[in-house]
Design a protein around this nucleic acid. Structure first.
Lengths: 206, 206
DNA sequence: CATGTTTAGGCACTGCGTGTCAAATCGCGT
DNA sequence: ACGCGATTTGACACGCAGTGCCTAAACATG
């Protein structure tokens, strides 16, 4: 398990190196028509090593998503308590998707793959579920209920839905600004998911 | 393409027969530990025939979802024009998921698989996307914009999010009523996605 | 230089999904 | 009764993803 702890054989290759090689192949000739053998050859690595880095062909597209998730959780936790729940979520989700102008091209490549290739569309749901758990956990803390409560899950999934829709829109309309559209979409949720409405929905049933 | 049009060799087996055999195997020994060969043997059919009926192992779990979708579209289309958009959606989604008391057991089996098995969680997104398209198309008609418009997609995906959350809740809490919870969750959306708010969001930008 | 530790690559295997082809089984016309 | 077209079925062969296992390679340490 210890990924290079100064002892043992050093790594001959890096995760990023493999990911880059794979991404260019995906963009150039399509995800499905790219085999793991081709990726391994392009990255000067064996097929077995590619799968050790990423676990599956689908995972290669997601890069460092998991670490990115931890930052989302931290930002939510550090929000001022007096700021309304839904507003905290709205703001955190927007800044979570702010990868900076430099990474826009790569982000578009990744999201184009994820939203168009069926195998990746499906696989994305697994990542989105992790993402939802973070939102739901935060809402649960604020509302003093468990994260598996219906209201938390409904809120988190509704936010996810808006985010997915916004990404698809951004792919189809590159001229629009991703963060602006995201903010607009989330604004629609703000009324229904305002805290009084949420507490009313929770109220009484435990 | 013609599935038995009174000419040619008649079908020796049925889709439903294969689906039933597969479902019992999935429930009994798990989805991943069930191979296509086992399903084929249980249904007294060849592996090739199973894949001709369903296209993939994942698809077997979804049964007649596509035809069910058409009924959703028709119900949306036949709603009275004076009924508010979000209310029509709310009502249609609730009754879309009303499979009757008799089918509750089978529905729970199916949804348990879909929400717990990773491969099926992922595959579900592809079906949900079709489902979203139906909702978005209806909203587009009402708002006199195209279905790929940001507001339509955000609405449809938010509704989807609530539905997914509700199903997961129902799996974990069998004592609760699916349709009631669904209705409650959708109620949270009704304010933000009320028609004035939607038209305001659409307004001006064409 | 021996030893332990970790990474890399090779190999075999299971299982899904696809393409292809011949055999089976019908209706229909002659 | 017989052939003919239409259609389904099963068998076989592939390609590819993913997993397990084993050996070799490349370091640090003593």
């Amino acid at each position: 398990m210890p990924r290079s702890a100064k002892v043992g054989r050093p790594l001959r290759s890096s995760r990023e190196q493999v990911a880059e090689a794979a991404l260019s192949l995906f963009v150039a000739q399509g995800f499905e028509r790219t085999t793991l053998d081709q990726i391994a050859a392009a990255a000067h690595v064996s097929r077995r090593t590619v799968l050790r880095y990423f676990g599956s062909k689908n995972d290669i597209v997601w890069g460092t998503f998991e670490e990115h998730l931890h930052r989302l959780a931290k930002q939510l936790a550090s929000a001022p308590p007096q700021q309304p729940l839904i507003e905290v979520v709205r703001q955190a989700v927007v800044s979570f998707n702010d990868y900076g102008a430099a990474a826009q091209g790569q982000l578009r490549d990744r999201m184009t793959l994820i939203t168009t290739v069926p195998a990746l569309q499906g696989h994305a749901m697994l990542r989105y579920a992790q993402w939802c758990d973070v939102i739901a956990a935060f809402a649960a803390g604020r509302l003093e209920i468990t994260a598996d409560h219906h209201v938390c899950q409904a809120l988190a999934n509704a936010v996810l839905g808006v985010a997915m829709a916004t990404y698809r829109h951004w792919i189809a309309h590159p001229e629009d600004d991703l963060l602006t559209k995201l903010d607009e979409g989330l604004a629609l949720l703000c009324e229904g998911f305002a805290e009084p409405a949420l507490r009313r929905a929770v109220g009484g049933e435990r």
